[in-house]
């Protein structure tokens, strides 16, 4: 048995003229969380749908747990689970009915199916809502039943497509706890997200996806290190001073300085930390009042900006069907 849970070569899906997934080569080792990070429409969902046998690749190949996703699709389905981005349970049915339905489909017979449903509802803190229709669930409860529905039979590999999109911070933390519990149990999780802090918190390894291609891969720290040793954030007190402050920083630091969305903020990737003190002094000499002057590790937002030339939340591409 291979210790790679996912192995793809040139995996491609074409919708019309758009290469929704464009020749992806991926190797995901067993265990832990692998993150697919990218903006809306980057091709994350399309890639996951090919890997979970929901759609056929147009070019290239993929093996999941050693099985070919086209020729041995049924073996793949026996060992993986998918929690889609949208409702992956029947909204008209109750929580208990949904899990019992899936338990029966997985081969539990008679009362065993109901017992398995009860077990999962209890584990996910949903016993009180067991008899309620799923469409009446709150967002956080919805996500939990979606994930519970994927665990009726414990999968070796779980695909989680944007599990926390639209959740409040508390519900998001609950989902994160569930993912950690799964990983501790030995399930490998492939998670897509457009939230950089989510990938940062959960993922052991991250593939950054943009316009159907993987543009970078590594641990969160590796990705950050690839951008530079640190990032300087300077906020001027008055917007009008920004252009002048930028000139000073470019001169003193010798690196490009980006103007962020925030009209007072300047961001620069630093290669030589020694020049930062000089830059601060120079700003003071120019009598530019500062609101903030901070040197830190780059965030994944900045990594994304550096890798793609556009911010992660630029939803410039439509998510392909």
């Amino acid at each position: 048995m291979s210790d790679l849970v996912i192995e793809t070569a040139g995996l491609t899906k074409i919708y019309g003229r758009q290469r929704a997934v464009d020749s992806i080569d991926l190797s995901v080792p067993r265990g832990g969380v692998h993150g697919f990070l990218g903006p809306n429409g980057a091709g994350k969902t399309t890639a996951i749908r090919m890997l979970s046998t929901l759609i056929l690749p147009d070019e290239g190949s993929a093996r999941v747990l050693g099985y070919d996703v086209v020729r041995e699709a049924d073996h793949v389905r026996s060992h993986v689970s998918l929690t889609g981005q949208f409702a992956s349970v029947d909204e008209d049915l109750t929580g208990h009915e949904n899990l019992r339905l899936l338990a029966r489909l997985h081969g539990y017979r008679g009362t065993a199916a109901g017992e398995r449903a009860d077990q999962l509802l209890a584990a996910f803190g949903l016993d009180d809502a067991a008899g309620k229709q799923v469409k009446k669930f709150s967002g956080g409860m919805r996500r939990r039943i979606d994930i519970a529905a994927s665990l009726v039979v414990t999968p070796e590999l779980l695909f989680l497509d944007e599990p926390t999109t639209g959740l409040d911070p508390r519900a998001r933390n609950e989902v994160w706890d569930i993912v950690r519990a799964l990983v501790a149990h030995g399930t490998t999780v492939l998670l897509t997200t457009q939230y950089l802090d989510e990938a940062d918190h959960l993922a052991d390894r991250i593939s950054v996806i943009d316009r159907g291609r993987i543009i970078a891969e590594g641990t969160s720290s590796e990705l950050k290190a690839s951008v530079g040793s640190g990032t300087l954030h300077v906020r001027v007190m008055h917007r009008a001073d920004r252009a002048r402050a930028r000139d000073v920083l470019v001169r003193e630091l010798g690196v490009p300085v980006e103007e962020a969305h925030d009209p007072q903020l300047l961001v620069a990737a630093i290669e030589d930390r020694g020049r930062v003190t000089r830059a601060l002094t120079a700003l003071e000499e120019e009598r530019l009042e500062l609101a903030q002057f901070a040197l830190g590790q780059p965030t994944l937002d900045e990594v994304f900006l550096a890798l793609t030339g556009h911010a992660a939340d630029d939803a410039d591409a439509e998510e392909a069907a």
């Binding site: 016993d127 414990t154 519990a181 501790a184 149990h185």
Partner: peptide, 19 residues
């Protein structure tokens, strides 16, 4: 149902349910 359930404390029970 939302307030009564604390998933943080149910993480071990999730592991049980899986096992």
């Amino acid at each position: 149902a939302e307030t009564k359930a604390s998933v943080a404390s149910s993480a071990p029970t999730i592991a049980d349910a899986l096992a």
